[in-house]
Design a protein around this nucleic acid. Sequence first.
DNA 1: ATTCTATTCGAAATCGTTGTAGTTGCGCTT
DNA 2: AAGCGCAACTACAACGATTTCGAATAGAAT
Lengths: 375, 375
Amino acid sequence: MRLGYQQFCLTGVLRVRSPDFKRLKLYIRIDQNKIFLAKKYTLKDLAQELNISISTVSKALNNSAEISEETQRKVLALAQLYHYRPNSTALRLRERRSNHIGVVLPDLVHHFFTTVFKGIEEYANARGFNVSVCFSDDSSQKEQDAINLLMDSGVDGIILSLAGETQQLKRWEYLQEITAQGTPVVMFDRATDQVLGDQVMIDDVQSAYKATQKLIEWGRSSIALLTTESYLSVNQDRQSGYQKALNDSSLSYDPARVLALPKSEVDPEALRQFFTDCPVDAVLCVNELIAVQAMHVVSSLGKRIPEDVAFIGYNNGMLSKYSYPSLTVVDQQGYLMGEKSAEVLIDKILSKTPLDTNKYVIPTTLVERDSTPNT
Amino acid sequence: MRLGYQQFCLTGVLRVRSPDFKRLKLYIRIDQNKIFLAKKYTLKDLAQELNISISTVSKALNNSAEISEETQRKVLALAQLYHYRPNSTALRLRERRSNHIGVVLPDLVHHFFTTVFKGIEEYANARGFNVSVCFSDDSSQKEQDAINLLMDSGVDGIILSLAGETQQLKRWEYLQEITAQGTPVVMFDRATDQVLGDQVMIDDVQSAYKATQKLIEWGRSSIALLTTESYLSVNQDRQSGYQKALNDSSLSYDPARVLALPKSEVDPEALRQFFTDCPVDAVLCVNELIAVQAMHVVSSLGKRIPEDVAFIGYNNGMLSKYSYPSLTVVDQQGYLMGEKSAEVLIDKILSKTPLDTNKYVIPTTLVERDSTPNT
DNA sequence: ATTCTATTCGAAATCGTTGTAGTTGCGCTT
DNA sequence: AAGCGCAACTACAACGATTTCGAATAGAAT
């Protein structure tokens, strides 16, 4: 508790020079020797002070042609003095629109979601939309709770990336309920055709295909894939791309070279076992977390990176950039995905067109660093 | 655009068995062979359907004693059928409370803010509060814009960590304006006494003191400090703690051992120069980003970590955990800070007590990993 | 003096909800 | 039969803003 904090709270009647309002009530608070308004003013306050009707004040502020210049001048002057800002809740109620969107993310641990969110947030703010976030922690129940909380708070639309469990159990009734009522939904990265909403995706098959192809171009022939034991569509797609690239280059696909880990935080012993049993000269990892852990293990086995083993991961995050060696990754361009998702959602909200399903594909790029040979 | 997507939109009159409503209008949509309601129902809808007044419906739903059991039963049954949920915007307008808080963060790049935000979000959600976020990118102007956007959207209170520029320029009138109007503000990590709000902080002086002391206990005598050229109070405090620990252990404080970097993404050459000119056996870094970069440089100079040089950083993030060697850090317990901030803010919102200033200190812990000797 | 027209403003409805203050109808008392 | 009390319901105002429609006033035209 701070002591000695000077704090007054005055309600005063100030006399002002202006001919428009010779005498006006001004609730003020003096704080740190500065004067601040201590009240949020409404149209009613302005109207009373000026002795005109609320309607007139409203029209004056909205530049209606009905109002005389004289009156408008007075209203604007007082509004400025009072720092008047329309009460957005009242507007929402009237317009049945909140300029507010909700976002549900599986988590913020993965750098990817962080960047997507940043993209959403900046784009939405630029268009005057507020953004509320909730996390599902990959739980279907939490996802549902989050969506309810957001819907109850009156968002105009929702952007989400499906929780892992939701994709596994295929339970998306609560999403269908929302769209049935006309609230637009945009899904990014993890989506389903069962829900009537737009999808913003990367081409996972293609990106894994190209990454694998690149490794092959660099002369690598025994290429491992480190993925997670997961129902997540993205990982399945990446595996398809990996497999396709091998087949197309007449390299055999060997299931022994694919390791599906229970989660992204890996038991080093499992990795050590894998790399001892199965000597490889390149590794594709479905995320950067697995990649850096694998690099540590491979290094400790006396192999050089990238000379003996090359690494490519996914997610262009902090870990990739500052690991040693720094990691070559497929950049999913989360920021772009976020921007696109927000754009699609807001356009749909404002246009009020009937809901439909459109798919947008965000291109990926390969960010080459020290874990792969120089091209 | 998906084709073949079956989509009907029907408005039907359903006959129901129940004696309460033999004939009722039900707007439905059939999607994927499932039936969903296609309308958000209001009290008015319920009242019309049951031929009673809106007031009665409202009271029945709120368990008023005035309503007969018979009527209440009917109302509840229909409300359930209609999936009725009160319109939160209307409630907000009436209660002048939104159950909505705003958060302004300098960024999400630093793992610290991510964890704080997670803490805020989970705590707030658990108490039925929604959370909107904006980013200041350490810019004073953006911070002000963010706060305006949030205030306009009608949040009940704001949690923020001051933008660097704001701390530098000492321009916080817009915060004082908010508190003057009675909206509670909680500042965490980067705060100022000039704004009438609660503060949730870690004891930066103390934590740096203890970290430095620990290094001294391990027998290190020439300890460097890597910090940023910054007006940020936290970094200044950490430097004070570092200095104090040296003095208290009768080790001399040598300004040559302190390197203030322009930003956290470092020029490796500057670090190389520093470590060549100034041989040290321990390094304290004000964040994990600087620490891992410094570790790479020190390694490349042929020094062993932690045998030759020990490292302690701040922020218990991904980088610390997965760097090589893994980094010992001062954990600021962001999650706890977030929870506490949200708790303090929500309590103040609900209690409607006059604003004041309280300081809460969140304890730090030292997470020991491989960049320091085993204790 | 009366009518017309343009200008400027105000009353009221609306959005969905709740709380207060009536308003019924019915049974009971005297 | 008149009055009272109670149970069960309804009407209305309020929250803050916009908007439609109608009213008032002025001056101009007849």
